[in-house]
């Protein structure tokens, strides 16, 4: 008989956090766990977390493949470095979680897909009013001087959501996700009973479900004009959409406990669509324009134009994941 394998000295599961193209808000979510972060640390080993801990890339590379229980990656993918890190963490982690809107859907950063890379560089390094760049110096991926070389990551043509670059197991929506959702997700992952791959770890009903203003929406709401929050004095108790302000709660997954309406602002859709919707913006657009209160083509056109930026409004967080601006070509299309 052979001896049973030695019990590892440190049986705590390993967890990694990483950020790609993001604002850092998702990192805040982890910090916003407050003292519960200590419970997390007690339960897991954090092996990589650039924003807080001094582990390096080579530390991760040194780990055996699949040795990390879960890697939480936030942010969209725009640079070669982000792509490399996504692949690295995918290789090292059993479970890869896309954390937040940018990783899930492309996020705010994904609106860059309305412009070309060249256009963005021109605008950022030459044309913006606060820029003085007479020599037209642009960032270089490789710069050599005196025998030394400095490199920068390359910038891809478009912004991608995480799953357009690597295989993703779970999604944690939100801009940023709430600490509660993160906490629940950690519990689910540690609990061992994993939900089906691809699950979005948030309720699958739309936000109205948990909005405290739900009851105040009239049954037959139609609108002659859409307003932006800055152009309206929003009553604190009444359904925001009923006040003419475009609120995307009806189209957006719940789970945030209606934080924005509770803060007297409309939902802008950061939790993305429910599982039954293929293109968030199209559905949100359909619902909002269906309740336009006119049958007259000219008046409809006028009302439609009270939404000054339809793509920015309906695809604020999901442009890279949209049907027309998506990169991921799914299986059905490949096997055409």
């Amino acid at each position: 008989m052979t001896k049973p394998a030695a019990v590892p000295k440190n049986p705590k599961p390993k967890v990694a956090f990483y950020w790609c193209a993001s604002c850092g808000g998702c990192e805040e979510t982890v910090l916003d766990l407050d003292e519960r972060v200590l419970d997390v640390v007690a339960a897991v080993d954090i092996v990589f977390w650039p924003v807080a801990l001094d582990f390096k890339r080579h530390d991760v590379e040194a780990l055996p493949d699949g040795s990390i229980l879960a890697a939480f990656v936030n942010g969209a993918v725009r640079t070669t470095e982000q792509e490399e890190m996504a692949h690295l963490l995918r290789k090292k982690a059993k479970v890869l979680v896309a954390l937040g809107s940018c990783a899930q859907l492309g996020g705010i950063a994904g609106l860059a897909n309305l412009s070309s890379r060249e256009g963005i560089l021109q605008s950022s390094y030459c044309e913006s009013p606060s820029t003085v760049n007479a020599e037209k110096v642009f960032p270089q991926t490789l710069y050599k001087e005196n025998g030394y070389s400095v490199s920068l990551p390359g910038l891809f043509e478009t912004v991608c959501s995480l799953d357009q670059v690597v295989d993703v197991d779970y999604y944690l929506p939100g801009c940023p996700p709430t600490p509660k959702l993160l906490w629940d997700a950690v519990h689910v992952l540690l609990g061992g009973e994993l939900p089906p791959k691809g699950t979005v770890l948030a309720p699958d009903r739309a936000l109205c479900e948990e909005c405290p203003r739900k009851d105040t929406r009239p049954e037959k709401l139609t609108l002659k004009e859409f307003k932006r929050p800055q152009d309206a004095v929003i009553d604190e108790a009444t359904c925001v959409l009923a006040q003419g302000v475009v609120c995307l709660g009806p189209a957006t997954r719940s789970g945030c406990e209606a934080l924005c309406p509770q803060g007297n602002m409309p939902c802008t859709g950061c939790f993305g669509p429910t599982s039954r919707v293929r293109d968030y913006g199209a559905k949100a657009l359909s619902a909002i324009s269906s309740i336009i209160d006119s049958n007259d083509p000219e008046e409809i056109e006028k009302i439609v134009h009270t939404v000054p930026d339809p793509v920015g409004t309906f695809y604020r967080y999901s442009l890279p994941a949209s049907l027309l601006r998506r990169k991921k070509i799914d299986e059905a299309l490949k096997t055409k």
């Binding site: 657009l285 324009s289 269906s290 006119s294 793509v311």
Partner: peptide, 12 residues
Amino acid sequence: KTLRRVRMLRRV
């Protein structure tokens, strides 16, 4: 309703 959606969708 089709007309309303089409007008918005066209802009997108």
